[in-house]
Amino acid sequence: MNRIQSKLKENKKLLSIYLTAGYPNIDDTVTIIQSLEKNGVDMIEIGLPFSDPLADGPTIQDSSTSALKNGMTTEVLFKQLKDIRKTVSIPLIIMGYFNPMFQYGVEAFCKKCQELGIDGLIIPDLPVDVYHNEYQAIFEKYGLINVFLITPQTSDERIRYIDSISNGFIYMVSSASTTGAQSGFGSEQTQYFERIAQMNLKNQQVIGFGISNNETFTQATQYAKGAIIGSAFVKYVTKNGTGSINKFVDTILG
């Protein structure tokens, strides 16, 4: 069983953290991953930086630009992760835009992920139907779980379709926004969370976008299996470096 699937079976709410690979410094990737696991984080999204991250707000875009300036590339990331499974056992997901994977070669990329012990991928700009028609077989061949996004505007019918081709969790975008744009959940969001919870989907949901503290984490995990924090964490390491990650995690988990 894939590590993501095992993790989802655990009887607890999951905290997942996103980091931008190669940020703040090129060699911080592995240090941050290890530190996150040590401090009780359940799952990690490793952001492969892209020059034009359309779905991200300024925080993650800026960290991506810095990471690229630091010299981060697909090859460099794969080198950094070479021995990651010797020290880290929680699920690892690579999150990135499609073009760098396409240039690396989708199959070669997936194969490499399997070798390194990567469990899944999140590719915001790879459309569901293109994945389904062209790439699903490749992902499955290398044991990778592809995670799809849904938003408050996604129709029930489409959610059912996405549920039918998912085999890990569904990434619930909390509101119509890019990353890092929200600062708390209103009634509109909670209604949406409830609506999805009531759909009894085959795959559990993890909520992302707009989770930045204990309050929003608790709110989100009331309705979903877990929550993902991205921009708030990137901001934290921008300000505090990689030395006090325990404090960040503690604040979230309360």
């Binding site: 779905a55 700009d125 790879l126 459309p127 569901v128 293109v130 996004l149 938003t151 505007q153 975008v173």
Partner: peptide, 11 residues
Amino acid sequence: GGAFIPEMLYP
């Protein structure tokens, strides 16, 4: 061609 867009833009 095609439409390589994040799900947020799909609707």
